[in-house]
Design a protein around this nucleic acid. Structure first.
Length: 278
DNA sequence: CATCGACCCTGCGGGC
DNA sequence: TGCCCGCAGGGTCGAT
């Protein structure tokens, strides 16, 4: 569920609360909480000091005073909450990272909660600062080395529809189903148009739209529809009220008042305006 | 390489 | 009241 803006909200929250802290112990309560390909068991990070919190796309990792890092992916329903140890365990608690000191004088744990268990933690090596599992995906648009021209050229060569292309984390990372639909609406591009049939300016407009929308969402603390997405303090973001098409099937298009349509394709829902997006 | 479908999970709401 | 179905913001894998 969390896309780049939601993961960035979590990253910033962790940065605020746990940088400089030392990991005392990590417990897991579900076998899927540890990624099977993890280089080492989670106990390898016991005693490590947290130097910084980094992110690329939807992947998050803690840089430590070690040769390896602790990587986290939230999957569809993952949350990382900064909590006090006496707070009752959530039924979907998958892992507990206990810290040596008190966070901002009161909390002392980071809890990984994940209803659907698609999220995971793992201990990984880094190559030029990037963990192994993150090497597989492309840079996200908020990285300074992000190359818009190269992404546009890449997409323009493809024979798939534009929507799966912008969701493909190997081309550009961070965009998920919500921001893909929002970006395509803003750029007035139908989600099923084949990449090859678009021109470079149209593709550029889609990517730039995604970037603008994600920036706004980060400012609003991300998108929350329900209990499923929370920041590290357990609070919801406000961006859902700014969504133009996602989850608004049957409602009027904010531009032309036509009814927003929802179609299923490539196993996901797409929301778009049939009049603005041809 | 690029693309597609199946699969990995749990829980919710709607229709019957 | 139940039951079944579709649906949910993620990625990975193997077949083609």
């Amino acid at each position: 569920m969390p896309e780049l803006p939601e993961v960035e909200t979590v990253r910033a929250g962790l940065e605020k609360y746990i940088v400089g802290q030392q990991i005392r112990n990590i417990e897991t309560f579900h076998p899927r909480a540890l990624k099977p390909s993890s280089l080492l068991p989670l106990s390898a990070v016991n005693g490590a000091k947290i130097n910084s919190i980094r992110r690329r796309g939807k992947f998050l990792w803690l840089e430590l005073d070690r040769e390896f890092v602790l990587v986290a992916h939230l999957g569809m329903s993952g949350q990382l909450l900064v909590q006090k140890s006496h707070v009752k365990d959530h039924p979907h608690l998958r892992a507990r990272i206990s810290l040596s000191g008190l966070i901002k004088g009161y909390a002392n744990e980071v809890r990984f909660i994940d209803q659907r268990t698609f999220g995971w933690l793992s201990v990984e090596q880094v190559f030029e600062g990037i963990p192994t599992s993150v090497l597989k995906i492309s840079k996200d648009p908020f990285e300074s080395e992000f190359d818009l021209r190269q992404v546009v050229t890449n997409i323009n060569r493809r024979k798939t529809a534009i929507k799966p292309a912008i969701l493909n984390q190997n081309i550009i990372s961070g965009i998920g189903n919500i921001y893909a639909d929002e970006a395509l609406w803003r750029a007035k591009i139908h989600p099923e148009i084949i990449c090859e049939d678009l021109n470079e300016n149209e593709i550029k407009k889609v990517i730039k739209s995604a970037i603008s929308i994600m920036k706004l969402s980060i400012k609003a603390g991300g998108t929350s529809f329900d209990e499923a997405y929370k920041n590290v303090n357990g609070e919801s973001g406000y961006f859902s009220r700014s969504l133009k098409v996602y989850g608004r099937e049957g409602e009027p298009c904010p531009r032309c008042r036509s009814k927003i349509r929802r179609i299923a394709f490539t196993n996901r829902s797409s929301h778009f305006c049939p009049r603005c997006q041809r």
